[in-house]
Amino acid sequence: MKTSVLSTTRVYFSSISAGVRSLVQACSSILPYLWSATELRKEVTEQYPDPVSSRTPDELPSRTRGLLENDIQRCTGCKECEEVCPVKCIKVENEPGEDPGKTWVAVFDIDHASCIFCGLCVEVCAPQSLIHTREYEGAALALPQLVTSFGRGRVTDEQREKWDIMRRSQEAENL
């Protein structure tokens, strides 16, 4: 490459003008975000707690796997979900219930802290009582608060006695 005073000067000034041009280009390229009639002017931010500018759980895709929910009325306490859960975050305990043929789901705890939202438990649920909601708001200040209980609670002895009396009277009626 030939170098002379002239060419060096030309390179010097052309690089200065290139610098100035790139600066002007950079500054003007961001202008449409400030003032323009196009889409660029609009903000893309979803302002979360505000339901207007952000998506609410209802607007999420239908197969979103959010926090788990169990309809305990339909739950049979079969423990399939507990078996299949890879992180063992579901805890089910059954007791004999009012009707000897049906189980009483005393404890149905889902630990959302360790749940990995894989959806296996929902797939194996025969009565389809366990579902993924689209709900995601579950932040808590302590780990035990992340455990969600759906169980009916332990049956007390008085309740059991009452059921026994009821059952006996029913049997007597049937006879």
């Binding site: 961001i30 975000y33 400030l34 660029l40 903000e43 893309v44 931010t45 302002q47």
Partner: peptide
């Protein structure tokens, strides 16, 4: 606010 606006976001509000 200018920095936020140039990135098409809202900035402190």
């Amino acid at each position: 606010k200018l920095g936020a606006d140039l990135q098409a976001r809202v900035g402190p509000n």
